[in-house]
Amino acid sequence: MKNQWPQWEVFVRSEAGLAHKHVGSLHAADARMALEHARDLYTRRNEGVSIWVVKSENVHATDPQESDEFFGPSEDKTYRFPTSYHVPEGVKHL
């Protein structure tokens, strides 16, 4: 079972104006083949207008064990959201 082709993560833009979205992975020997396989595998029903493929080993992710430290600090900064401000009655265009 040597020579397994590398794994690639596939991102598809479903229509112009939308961002690429992760849809899954596949195996391919090279980037060109990965794009072709992604087309055949993930856009058989017209689901895409653009595809990105990234070798899975090149994706760096946050560690779920550190989620609290990583994402917690933004939880109490409610002043970043407009809903935390009082708008006096009758004031418009704020």
């Binding site: 596949l26 391919a28 396989h37 055949d40 058989r44």
Partner: peptide, 11 residues
């Protein structure tokens, strides 16, 4: 030879 090619050949 690999399942991805089944999908490709079918296309």
């Amino acid at each position: 030879p690999i399942m991805e090619e089944d999908v490709a050949i079918a296309n």
